[in-house]
């Protein structure tokens, strides 16, 4: 009887396996199509546009003008560097702020877990623009935050380290970085939360049982096991922050322009499409390169 059962499943499995083999690809089709239409095609258009010459009134012709990339880099490298530095700083700040919070929500919050998670996501219920505008109010000169910061000599300190240029908080590097950190913090917290939530508290007990102090337990057990969340969170924060132009425009000054603002104005105000396309492409290449190096490095550290 057992033999018969084996035989019948064996013969039934053969055709169904063949049929199953192309089903996954069929299911992928809508997604692939979506990628082609909304990612590959715009990418190709952008690449070709960057190599065109002309103006809006007379139209553009493809001339293969590679020199525009050299011009773009020469003219705008400070904005690139600034974008990467600001985004990097905001990412580190978001990690420092987000990690303890995510750890608390995942491991200690008990029945308040869902409530706190909702509070983390709550700012998303209003628009990005409104939230950033709110920071203009918060950091404005006639608001108590600035007043207190002045009384406590925080403004002096910020000025001394070059994050602000006078004794107000708004329209400064400081304000831009704060805005970036604030706006992308939830993108850091949520992936961190997911990986810390999966962390088995018994592993932490086991580490303590095996003579690891609280710091050693964090360093050897908690941190390595949360790395997937750290990698995901830093990417989700860094990538959009590097291309952001709202924070720099609303909270910064002419000395804090990020590359996103440059691209924005080249596209929409100056209408220099080839330059804007080249600038976008350079940003894309920089980010892809940095991300792949980063993921490679982080990935080798035993991500399970």
């Amino acid at each position: 009887m057992a033999e018969a059962a084996v035989l019948s499943t064996g013969s039934a499995a053969a055709p169904s396996r063949r049929r199953r083999s192309w089903v996954p690809y069929a299911l992928l089709l809508p997604g692939l199509l979506w990628l082609v239409v909304f990612f590959v095609l715009p990418m190709v258009t952008l690449a070709s546009q960057s190599l065109q010459e002309g103006n809006v009134d007379d139209g553009y012709v493809f001339t293969g003008n590679v020199g525009i990339y050299v011009d773009a880099l020469q003219q705008y490298w400070p904005q690139y560097v600034r974008s990467l530095v600001y985004a990097g700083t905001a990412t580190v700040l978001a990690l420092l702020l987000g990690y303890p919070l995510a750890y608390f929500i995942a491991q200690k919050a008990g029945r308040y877990k869902n409530l706190i998670l909702v509070l983390v996501i709550a700012p998303f219920f209003t628009s990005f623009l409104i939230r950033t505008l709110a920071w203009r109010t918060i950091l404005s000169d006639d608001w108590f935050v600035t007043e207190w910061a002045q009384k406590l000599h925080i403004t002096d300190f910020l000025q001394a380290v070059g994050l602000t240029s006078n004794d107000s908080l708004l329209s400064s590097k400081f304000a831009v970085i704060m805005g970036l950190t604030y706006n992308f913090l939830p993108f850091m917290i949520l992936p961190l939360y997911t990986s810390l939530e999966r962390l088995d508290p018994r592993l932490i007990e086991a580490a303590g049982d095996l003579y690891a102090s609280a710091w050693q337990t964090f360093r050897r057990v908690t941190w390595p096991l949360s790395l997937p969340g750290v990698v995901a969170g830093t990417l989700l924060t860094f990538i959009p922050a590097a291309g952001d132009f709202i924070n720099a425009r609303l909270l910064g000054n002419t000395q804090t322009t990020m590359i996103g603002s440059v691209i924005d104005s080249q596209f929409l105000r100056v209408l220099d499409y080839p330059l804007a396309a080249a600038l976008s492409f350079i940003l894309l290449i920089i980010i892809v390169t940095m991300v792949s190096v980063y993921v490679r490095r982080a990935g080798t550290e035993e991500l399970l």
């Binding site: 088995d200 007990e205 086991a206 049982d209 095996l210 003579y211 690891a212 057990v221 035993e302």
Partner: peptide, 28 residues
């Protein structure tokens, strides 16, 4: 706990999944 010269074999084993068997054993 970490100051006591006492060790536990947990019911759930609680082995560190990101370390090799050797590293697990060397942990303490």
């Amino acid at each position: 706990a970490y100051q006591r010269n006492v060790n536990t074999v947990f019911q759930s084993y609680a082995l560190f999944p990101h370390m090799s068997v050797m590293d697990n054993v060397m942990f303490g």
